[in-house]
Nucleic acid binder design. Sequence first.
RNA 1: UCCUCAGUAGCUCAAUGGCAGAGCGUGCGGCUGUUAACCGCAAUGUUGUUGGUUCGAGUCCAACCUGAGGAGCCA
Length: 471
Amino acid sequence: MLSVFHPYSARSLLYSRLHRNLRETTMTNLITIERIADHVGQRVTIRGWLYDLTPKGKLLFLRLRDGTGLTQGVAYRPEVGDELFERLAHLGQESSLIVSGTVKANDRAPGVPRGYEIAVEEAEVLQDAVGYPITPKEHGVEFLMDNRHLWLRSSKQWAIMRVRATIKRAIIDFFDSRGFLNIDTPIITPSAAEGTSTLFEVGYFDDKAYLAQTGQLYNEANIMAFGKVYCFGPTFRAEKSKTRRHLAEFWMVEPEIAFCDLEQLMALEEEFVSTVVGRALDERANELAVLERDVTALRNVVAPFPRISYDEAVQRVQAIRDATDDPELKEQLAIEWGDDFGSPHETELTKQFDRPVFVYGYPTAVKAFYMEPWPGRPEVCKSVDLLAPEGYGEIIGGSERMSDPEVLLAAIRRHELPEANYQWYIDLRRYGSVPHSGFGLGLERTVTWVCGIEHIRQTSPFPRTLNRMTP
RNA sequence: UCCUCAGUAGCUCAAUGGCAGAGCGUGCGGCUGUUAACCGCAAUGUUGUUGGUUCGAGUCCAACCUGAGGAGCCA
């Protein structure tokens, strides 16, 4: 029995009718495409959107997506009848519809998961969409970003968001299962943790305040109450950065651990990162396939990770520089002991390894004020960055924190920070100070790397960058 | 803030200083296995803005606007 609502003021949407259609739909065996393999041979119903349409004479291929996957509906004119066939054959891309039919396994069927299709028996069109702007062809960045609200429906963007959700879940599970307390840190803060130049300013009643760029200092207070904690939320940087690695708003997870030194911190980081990557590999194989990600590179991400000192890293970069014939690269790679690494340095260094690499013991001068001095080498601090392979660069910055109140006070004065704002922070060292460490991992940079994509903006559903805060 | 590149049809791009073009998408028709299908027909333009050079500017010059990705900074 066919149920085609035809004609109704062609190509216009009537809400009352739309909702009536929805209620009257036979919901027998309503499934998600994600689970289509469990329903081979059954008559099922799916609800979703038309991703693409290929007419082929008496045969019609409808690529259908429902948010959980993508599958192929096959309509055969003699079976569905002329009326429904004609209606389906002229649907616009992204039309919304409800389709019922029998699931069949077929090697030729594309989709996520691939290899299954639905022999269409019935269909109801909720809306015939006209003029959907994003075609299954090449588009430019500006056009796609202007249409971000629609671009999210495209299969690669869909896959990235699903990988992101899994990575987020894996992060939470990792810390929750290891005795960390999830605790929230403020987003509105009175001053910068590490200087004021890169913060978004907001009005706070009659005062000025800033959007937080880190929750770390608060977490140092939290660990003295709870032992091991992590915060996980949005963070804000007003840096005028226009690169494929920067967002103005991004998510960061920041664990902080009492009674933890730099060695133990690195051990935690490598276990953490390899666990998270493993979860993405296990749970998002289909999505990584959509992204055409080389998963063998991800399978190498197994602890332990190589650990090299800043001193050694400088020597390695200098050796790479000496070996190259490319004059541009030679200039970019110029570095002396005491300089911070720029992205060209990090990129070349990470090319030497097949998994993330730790660089520890940076010069005190290029790092934040709160890092513990290296014993016997005050010009070096107990900091560690974790650099992702394949040119993806820094995904984690961490350190052992200063535990001596006098040393900390001296550092605050040396950096000319407003001392009054840091009294509570110094207090943490006055009342039961212990060695402690922590790190921050950028969610979007991690997702960019795991997905193997070009640009960080694709890892945020609605990215905020230097030149864009819409849609 | 600095450097480099770009802006032409809905989209992606061509066009020696000399008639504004193609592919895709869209509409109509054809095709029983399409995977960004294929074949035929049709419609589609304030060449980012302003000024200048020239008989003539999409093209050359100047300024501006918008965007891109790289530096710095950083997750």
